[in-house]
C-alpha cells in the first residue's frame, strides 16, 4: 500500500478508499479495510485479518485503554501497554517472523495510538454491527462503508472506585437505564439483598446483586470494576463465544468462574508455544501466570470474575524478578 499524504495529523487518517473506508498511518504501519478484510502493512511485511475479528479485537484494545500488558489481535499483530506509551508490533512475539527479521515494533505515546485506533473503530464499524456483542446478537461487519454505530463503539467501561451502587459511584444496571437482562441469563435471580441501615449509616451499609448486574451486561469480554480494595480490583465480565484477543500478561491475574463454563488455551508469552488448557466450571479458580498468554472460549454466555492487581509497581517488580511470575509456590 502506498502511503498517501496524511489528511489528519491527529488520527493519521489518509482519506477514504473506493469502499468508503479511511486509510490510516501510524509510524511505519498502515491500515486499510475492504469489504472482508483489514490489511496491515509495515516496512518489511504485510498482514491480513478478517475484518470482523479485527474490529472485535480493536474494540477491546480501545475500550480497555490498551489493558494490562499485551493485546494480541492474532498471532502476528498487537499492542503492548507501557502505561504512557504503547508498542504497536507485528511478528515481534512470533518466533518465525522474528527469526526471519520481518517483524516490526514501534513505540508511540498512548494518545497517538489511541487517536488512530478510535478513529479506525468509528470509521470501519458499519451500522448494525456491534463489535462488543456476541456474534449471534449482532449483524454483519462486511461490505462497503454503510453508516456507523457510534453508540456501540463509544460505550464507556464501567469502573467503580469503591463499589457499584454506592452514591456517586458506578450505577447499578436496570431496565430503566437501558440494561435489560440478557437472553442467556433470563433465569438469573434478580432479587436485591435485604439492607437495613440505621440512620446515618446508609452510605456504609451497602450490598447489591452482582449476578443480576452481570446478567444485564450488554457487552462480552469487557471487564468492568465492581469493587476495589486498595489496588485489588474485582473485574467481572460476561463471556460468550471467543475472547477476541489473546491476552499476554505483564502480571499475574486470576480467574474465578462464577457461572457456566469457559475453556482457556494457555501459551508461552513471548513465542506462543502451547503450555496448557484450563477448563473452568462454576466455582473453579485459576491463576494466569505473568509469563503466559491466554485466550478463552465460552460455549454459552458465562459470568467470569477476573481479579486484577492494579499496583503501579507490579510490572517493574515482575520484570526485575523481585516478584514471581507464578503467584504461589507450593
Amino acid at each position: 500500500m502506498s502511503v498517501a499524504p496524511v489528511v489528519s495529523e491527529e488520527t493519521g487518517a489518509l482519506g477514504a478508499n473506493r469502499f468508503g473506508y479511511q486509510k490510516f498511518a501510524l509510524g511505519s504501519f498502515s491500515f486499510e479495510r475492504d469489504e472482508y478484510f483489514a490489511h496491515i502493512a509495515w516496512s518489511h511485511g504485510t498482514h491480513t485479518m478478517d475484518v470482523g475479528d479485527f474490529l472485535r479485537a480493536l474494540m477491546r484494545d480501545v475500550a480497555w485503554g490498551f489493558f494490562y500488558g499485551y493485546v494480541h489481535f492474532d498471532s502476528v499483530f498487537g499492542t503492548c501497554n507501557h502505561y504512557g506509551t504503547v508498542d504497536v508490533f507485528a511478528g515481534t512475539y512470533n518466533s518465525n517472523y522474528k527469526r526471519a527479521g520481518v517483524d516490526e515494533l514501534q513505540n508511540h505515546p498512548t494518545d497517538r495510538v489511541g487517536a488512530t485506533f478510535v478513529a479506525m473503530i468509528e470509521d470501519w464499524t458499519n451500522e448494525g454491527f456491534d463489535p462488543f456483542a456476541a456474534p449471534m446478537e449482532t449483524g454483519s461487519p462486511y461490505g462497503p462503508n454503510r453508516g456507523s454505530n457510534l453508540e456501540a463503539v463509544r460505550r464507556a467501561r464501567s469502573t467503580a472506585t469503591r463499589c457499584v451502587g454506592l452514591d456517586g459511584d458506578a450505577p447499578l444496571r436496570t431496565d430503566g437505564s437501558g440494561y435489560p437482562v440478557n437472553r442467556a441469563f433470563a433465569d438469573v435471580d434478580q432479587s436485591e439483598p435485604e439492607v437495613h441501615a440505621e440512620p446515618g449509616f446508609e452510605d456504609r451499609v451497602h450490598a447489591f446483586n452482582l449476578f443480576a448486574y452481570l446478567s444485564r451486561s450488554d457487552v462480552t469480554w469487557n471487564p468492568s470494576f465492581t469493587s476495589v480494595v486498595k489496588h485489588s480490583f474485582m473485574c467481572p465480565t460476561t463471556e460468550e463465544h471467543i475472547l477476541p484477543i489473546v491476552h499476554g500478561n505483564d502480571r499475574v491475574e486470576w480467574f474465578f468462574q462464577l457461572s457456566d463454563e469457559i475453556h482457556w488455551d494457555i501459551s508461552t508469552r513471548d513465542t506462543a508455544e502451547p503450555r496448557s488448557r484450563v477448563i473452568m466450571k462454576p466455582g473453579d479458580m485459576a491463576a494466569m501466570p505473568a509469563d503466559c498468554r491466554h485466550q478463552g472460549f465460552a460455549p454459552k454466555r458465562a459470568m467470569l470474575l477476573v481479579w486484577e492487581n492494579g499496583s503501579p509497581k507490579i510490572v517493574d517488580e515482575i520484570s526485575s524478578g523481585q516478584a514471581p511470575v507464578n503467584p504461589v509456590d507450593f
Binding site: P193, F201, F208, N209, A212
Partner: peptide, 11 residues
C-alpha cells in the same frame, strides 16, 4: 450500623 442479608450472587 444495621444489618444485611445476602444470598447467592449478592455482594
Amino acid at each position: 450500623m444495621g444489618w444485611i442479608r445476602i444470598q447467592r450472587g449478592h455482594q
